[in-house]
Simulated assay, not measured.
Amino acid sequence: MNDLSRPRRPHGPGAYVLVLGTSLVLGGLAGAASAFFDDQPGPVGTAMTAALVSAAMAVGFTACIWWWRGIDEAAREAHKWAWWWGGSGGMAVGSVLLLTLMLRAEEQPLPAGIGSAPADIFVSGMMSILLFQLAGYSLAWAGWWLKHR
């Protein structure tokens, strides 16, 4: 019997942990490299930071593609459903919060942790949206599996 006649077994939790761990290590390396090149002035430092972060993202994205191709159809549907509904819902909630704070900035002082420089405020806003999307995705993913089990 050749290998093509047997059905392929989908990736299990070990593959997920491997991709998650790889992504965390790559993120840490990209952050460390960015901090190292932060002292480099001018366009060379910016180009090196962008190149290293892009390389880490490309490797992480490749790992995610490998993982996606190895999961079964039910897991794919759960992730697609959670990405659409949870991510969109989280983005909507985060956007309402950020727009409300922006429109009422004179009445409601921003917390000190957000920062005062425009770049700090921008990064805080982007991270807020990302965290709301992640929370929405996680809730929607868990709800999909509870509904379909």
Rank of each mutant, 00 (worst) to 15 (best):
V93E: 00
S54W: 06
S128W: 07
W68I: 10
L103N: 02
P13N: 01
V93D: 01
V44C: 05
V25A: 10
A56W: 09
D3I: 07
L131P: 09
L24M: 15
G12F: 07
S5N: 08
K80I: 14
A35C: 03
M102W: 12
L130Q: 10
V44S: 11
V123R: 13
M91P: 02
M91G: 03
G143Q: 13
W83F: 15
L134G: 05
G60R: 00
V123M: 11
G86E: 05
T100K: 01
M127T: 05
W84D: 10
L18G: 00
A56F: 10
V53W: 07
E73T: 14
L4H: 13
A92W: 13
P7S: 14
L146W: 10
N2I: 01
G45Y: 11
G90Y: 09
Y137E: 06
E107G: 04
G12C: 03
A78C: 08
F36T: 03
A50K: 04
A105P: 02
S88F: 14
W67H: 15
M127S: 08
I121N: 08
G87F: 04
A75G: 15
A33P: 01
R9M: 11
A112P: 08
T100F: 15
P111S: 04
A92I: 15
P109R: 12
H148R: 15
L146A: 10
I114A: 04
K147V: 14
T62A: 15
G115L: 06
F132R: 04
D72P: 14
G87V: 11
G12M: 06
F61V: 07
V19M: 00
A50C: 02
E73W: 12
H79N: 15
G31T: 10
L146F: 09
W141E: 11
W144M: 07
A135K: 04
G87N: 14
H79M: 10
A50E: 06
L103I: 01
M91L: 15
A32M: 12
P41Y: 01
Q133T: 10
F132I: 07
A82E: 07
A51V: 11
V123Y: 05
L110N: 06
Q108R: 11
G14A: 11
T62W: 13
G21T: 09
Y137N: 12
G27S: 00
A51D: 10
F37M: 05
G14P: 00
L101Y: 01
A58E: 05
V96I: 15
A30I: 06
R69D: 09
L20V: 02
D72L: 12
D39K: 06
S54P: 05
D120I: 09
I121K: 00
L20R: 01
A105K: 09
A32G: 04
A119C: 00
M127Q: 06
A142I: 11
L4Q: 11
G27F: 05
I65F: 00
G89R: 03
A74S: 12
D72T: 10
G115V: 06
V53G: 00
P43S: 14
T22Y: 08
W85H: 13
A51K: 00
L26R: 08
L139S: 11
I65D: 07
P13T: 04
V17W: 14
P10G: 02
V19W: 05
A82L: 07
P10K: 04
M48I: 01
L101H: 03
L110G: 03
R76F: 00
D120R: 05
D120W: 01
V17D: 08
K147I: 07
P13C: 01
L4G: 01
A58W: 09
T100E: 07
L134R: 02
W84H: 13
F122G: 08
T46C: 02
A82Q: 13
